[in-house]
Design a protein around this nucleic acid. Structure first.
Length: 576
DNA sequence: GCCGTTTTCGGCCCGACTGTTTTCAGTCG
């Protein structure tokens, strides 16, 4: 169901992008963008809605509702097709390059005929770009830097896109008669933040029908390879899907093998060799006799090697095997462990849902406590004021009466200024239950400056959580540079938690830094940063990242009972 | 194009920063 909304939202967003290139009214473009975000976040599947139902989506009025009805009927939007005919798709792709927006994209297309990233790179290398009015050497340099940033993400896709694709494929294949089991494996099962290709594993005595079903899926653009054991396809969005079909008795060994990582498997196979065994995707065998020992479940395979089952999110050969041998594997935090959420937005700032709808959705998640933390005034575009904040506090208080089972917390997402200060003074901040503070500007300070900035904000007695600490956006913006050990030391010392932001393009703090911070005794908050109810779906990815950072429930303050959490929040203020 | 305790028109996401310019356009959050 999520996909319908996302496909529709993508078309509306494309409409906004194309209009911004052709030069439409800015407010109209913004209206499309707002609607697109609201559609993604809308909890209901829009495919079953008529015009009247569609108009209930925030920021969707008569005109966009009719376009969505058009989409429901035909799978596309007529105006999008018309605009695509005027502007090549490659030109829109150019606007994905950081520092290159719609106006510059149109200029290079009109003046130089450039309509793809490779053509743009070539034009820059030939020095043709700097000839255009409004362009110069620095512009060329910045664009090249932006292209490199994009290419570092390479052909990998964000985890949510890969996950939705994998779940669709698994659902389709599971329906095939003779399919005994079907799951996704590979880096997706390990919850890597970006995914190169999607690995799907199935068990069946006869692979034929499964291979046929995969190649016949509507999302398949072309078939790369097709055989008895393995079939590879590329989807219409350019993602490769590999399907492996194994006999049912090999299931455990195959799942272990295709989950990886490669490095983890190398170590595990070495252990097998030392024990006089041989491990392959078909099972664990006696090396001498070739006799099958175990293969049905992952647990059996690990156990026969003297190991407990190792969670997929830890299988990176970064110490998990030794920990398993020592009986010291962490009890990883799960989505079920989360009692609360400490970072979310409403339409008072840049969220797309009302306070009432966000709180209702939080209650539906079964949360015991939920913090509303809209943006603070220094992020000027959000137009927050003291008055709005106080009015929201009153509204939260009134709403609390309707939710006896869930405690509402009122807070804010503060902006960390270049020196480590925040939006409000101590007096105003003292009236808030919880404060997240985040970097939203000045991303290119030196490491020394950013370190000082973050340490200083930790020392603020009213700041409880540092939001998306590296401020990275995968494929869009590099992380800020800092002496992280110094920051972690300050967090531990001051009792400031670090956020694990669940947005797929953030997943910030990243797993490797989480693990490093853990050594300093830092606590964490796994937060949705939801701007609409639909964003609560992202929590699984943040939990995956937390697991990759080896976090246990005790490390994550929003798994704690409310009393313990309040103690953590209060200790900071009382230290002032 | 959306929205409305400012209600069917006239607001709406404003200000900083960068790089290119001699006064401002484009991009970003």
């Amino acid at each position: 169901m999520a996909r319908t909304n996302e496909e529709a939202a993508e078309l509306v967003q494309e409409l906004a992008d194309l209009l911004s290139i052709t030069g439409g009214d800015a407010y109209r473009i913004r209206a499309y963008e707002k609607a697109a975000r609201a559609i993604v976040g809308y909890p209901e599947d829009i495919s079953g809605l008529d015009v009247a139902g569609l108009k209930k989506i925030p920021n969707v009025g008569e005109s966009i509702a009719r376009k969505l009805a058009d989409f429901n009927a035909s799978g596309t939007i007529r105006q999008v097709l018309e605009l695509r005919a005027q502007i090549p798709g490659g030109v829109r792709a150019l606007t994905a390059i950081p520092t290159l927006g719609p106006r510059k994209a149109l200029a290079v297309y009109r003046e130089l005929g450039v309509s793809s990233v490779p053509e743009l790179t070539e034009a820059i290398e030939e020095g043709r770009l700097r000839e255009l009015p409004g362009f110069g050497a620095r512009t060329e340099e910045n664009i090249l830097h932006g292209i490199r940033l994009m290419q570092r993400a390479g052909d990998r896709v964000l985890i949510d896109a890969a996950m939705e694709l994998a779940e669709d494929v698994v659902a389709a294949l599971s329906q095939v008669p003779g399919c005994l089991r079907c799951v996704y494996a590979g880096s997706l099962r390990r919850m890597r933040e970006t995914i190169g290709d999607v690995d799907v594993l199935a068990a069946a005595d006869d692979p034929g029908p499964l291979m046929a079903e995969l190649t016949a899926l509507p999302l398949v653009a072309d078939v790369i390879a097709q055989g008895d054991k393995k079939t590879s396809v590329r989807t219409t969005r350019g993602v490769q899907v590999d399907l492996r079909v194994v006999p049912p008795e090999s299931w455990g060994a195959a799942l272990q093998y295709f989950t990886g990582s490669k490095q983890h498997n190398v170590r595990i196979r070495e252990m097998a060799v030392h024990a006089g065994l041989k491990l392959s995707e078909y099972g664990l065998f006696d090396a001498a006799s070739g006799e099958l020992i175990v293969s049905a479940t992952e647990e059996e395979v690990y156990r026969r090697l003297g190991l407990p089952w190792i969670p997929p999110t830890l299988r990176e050969d970064t110490g998990e095997i030794q920990a398993a041998l020592d009986g010291a594997l962490p009890r990883l935090v799960t989505e079920d462990d989360l009692r609360g959420d400490l970072h979310s937005h409403t339409d008072l700032t840049d969220g797309t849902a009302s306070l009432e709808d966000m709180v209702a959705a939080a209650a539906a998640r079964g949360l015991e406590y939920y913090a509303i933390t809209d943006h603070a005034p220094n992020l000027y575009m959000q137009r927050m004021t003291d008055e709005k904040m106080l009015a929201q506090r009153a509204a939260v208080g009134a709403l609390q009466r309707r939710y006896p089972g869930m405690t509402l917390l009122h807070g804010a997402e503060l902006n960390i200024d270049p020196d480590g200060g925040v939006d409000w003074d101590a007096g105003f901040l003292a009236g808030l239950d919880v404060c997240v503070a985040s970097i939203h500007t000045h991303f290119t300070q030196t490491a020394e400056e950013t370190t000082r900035r973050l340490v200083r904000v930790c020392e603020n007695p009213h700041v409880h959580v540092i939001g998306h600490p590296t401020a990275r956006r995968l494929g869009r913006r590099a992380p800020v540079q800092a002496d992280w050990d110094e920051v972690f030391r300050a967090c531990a010392h001051t009792g400031t938690a670090l956020e694990v932001d669940c947005f797929p393009e953030r997943l910030d703090l990243p797993a490797d830094l989480i693990r490093r911070a853990l050594r300093f005794g830092v606590k964490f908050a796994v937060d949705s940063d939801a701007h609409s109810p639909g964003h609560f779906r992202n929590v699984r990815y943040g939990v995956g990242t937390a697991q990759r950072g080896w976090l246990t429930p005790d490390d994550v303050i929003n798994t704690w009972p409310l009393d313990r959490l309040r103690g953590f929040l209060a200790r900071k203020a009382s230290a002032a």
